[in-house]
Design a protein around this nucleic acid. Structure first.
Lengths: 190, 190, 190, 190
DNA sequence: ACCTTCGGGACTCCCCGTTTCT
DNA sequence: AGAAACGGGGAGTCCCGAAGGT
């Protein structure tokens, strides 16, 4: 199957971009990680690196969206746990070194790459939208859904950065607990 | 004024790294932004780009720390506003494109640059420590100080990324409001 | 003809290294001399300058070996003339400025480049071995073959240096005459 | 004594140039080897690297000349042994890695540095002249003095190169024995 | 039609030999 | 004598077209 080669490249790119940003991710590394020959790049990605980057962002954005959409939680808390839990896995497995490719692109994108930033924005918005919908569906007060969803995504991305620095999951767990406090629940405890 | 040249370079580097990450920040750009001549690099930063990067991280880490330390808030909410407000300024001024150099380094650092990541960790910790101290001094329940401080830093860094994508302050304001909810206050309102 | 480009580069490098040593030979000059674009280097010589240097040394070592092997002399004196004559041509043509790339590498090689020096040693040895064989085949006393061969190579390399300084062939001719005296011949004349 | 610092620099330069050629010898290394501060260079050597190189060549040339002049040999063979013996010491001590600074300059000098090459020529000639005089004074046939002197210097310089490659004195010893055969002596033995 | 070798410039970082001001 | 600052290349290599092999 010829598609396999391209897929491996995109997957490798997504992983590398999450770990070190776009600029620090060279074609050479992507090729090495995916085992593809050098000349194949412009066959699969005629527009070069930008196209590979776009594909990588779309891959992880879509993957996260799909996985969260399949969440069958019945409470806001369940929705939150589902979202955080998905990321927690990779942080634990990589001792914090794995990151989010969408954030990786957001961070080292210059103003002249507007279309790439547009894609990043769309990705984040799709997550926020889905989370807000799921919060609403599980009974969260209408006016709270979007703010909490935004805080969730922001908290997650920020926590991923702290996890890299700390080389562990601790910050993500702390942030997750605080995010949970934004949801109605077992009454006030502070 | 001999000191001036180096300072300008570090300042420019910090700004550029915040905006596009380390790898995407070339010496050439730093030089252009600071108006320095090429040969000065090797003199001021014998260890090259890593040293410039370290100095840039330390500059912003120290700057943020100093500015936050000078905050004269008397309530946890005041502490939070002080911290967020400091970042809000630059986000507004740059329409979201300015970012945090510490995060910029964290994102595109490979595992072999352990010392750089150590510096990043130390920077984040210094912020968390200071915030926790200030929360405690303004009456926040002891057990809540550190978790809230961690959430604050994570929320800020994540919000900065969302602000880049959205090209505006909206996400930061949303996150700030949610962080405020983690503090004891005017009773429950949801 | 795809092979041509690489060959031209190696040939240019060999010539330049012979004339000014390795360190003084920049890639830029090699490229200019061979008419190749800069990007071709990484493709043809993935290990960079060391690889180009190795190839250059092997080129001249092999060339000299082949040319000397094709010598059809029937006396030791004929063998010597053949070897010296081959070098004499280039010295005359360049007014002494052309040198031996093998010596060029030998001279500016630091101790940490052991493998390069190994190649140089192998090259010199191959010349000495061939000369010794040819001396033996043309009737030189067995015990004299290797010493005379070593003296021939040393005398040649030293003479090339003197020719550079004198900007002419005179030293080489003098050395050639003296080397001839090491061979049995027309009786003693001093 | 201020002279001391300059002397140490010239001495270090001579040694380094002999070991790796001129281009591969950086001011930084010379400074490190001589323990001098960077800013002193242009105080001692207003014309920069060329002047340092010239001084290094003159130091070596003068040193060799003086030492050979002090040789009290009474036979041509004694003169030869004196000259070779002086170099043999440093080759043995350095396992072949030490070389001759004059040759080092000769090898990586480009045609545009005519004056440096002039100095090299003068140095070699001074050695040849002295040797020829000494050979004459010890009874060598007049017509043989200069050719043998030239062969001696050429053989020495070539042998030094071979010694580098072989990492030992063997080639120099072989060459010395052959040079001795150019002198009248115990009758023919081949 | 699919893929890959081969080749092409444009940087990036490094560092080197200098000059100027103390 | 020396600290500070200066430009100019050096190698490396990155991201990419264009022509050929299967």
């Amino acid at each position: 199957v010829p598609r396999d080669s391209k897929d491996r490249m995109v997957r490798s790119a997504a992983s590398l971009i999450g770990s070190r940003g776009v600029s620090a991710t060279s074609f050479t590394e992507v090729l090495a990680a995916s085992g593809s020959p050098r000349g194949s790049i412009y066959y699969h990605f005629p527009s070069g690196k930008e196209q590979l980057t776009r594909d990588a962002v779309q891959l992880v954005a879509g993957h996260v969206l799909a996985r969260q959409a399949s969440c069958r939680a019945t409470t806001p808390r369940g929705v939150l746990d589902c979202f955080i839990g998905m990321w927690r896995e990779v942080v634990v497995a990589s001792h914090g070194s794995a990151g989010c490719a969408v954030a990786g692109v957001a961070v080292d994108t210059t103003p002249d790459q507007a279309d790439l930033l547009d894609l990043v924005r769309a990705s984040f918005r799709s997550w926020v939208d889905l989370l807000a919908d799921q919060f609403a569906a599980t009974g969260l007060h209408a006016g709270r859904c979007r703010p909490v969803a935004v805080a969730t995504v922001a908290g997650l991305e920020g926590a991923l950065i702290l996890c890299r620095a700390e080389r562990g999951v601790a910050p993500l767990d702390t942030v997750a607990r605080e995010l949970a406090r934004l949801l109605p629940g077992r009454g006030r405890e502070d």
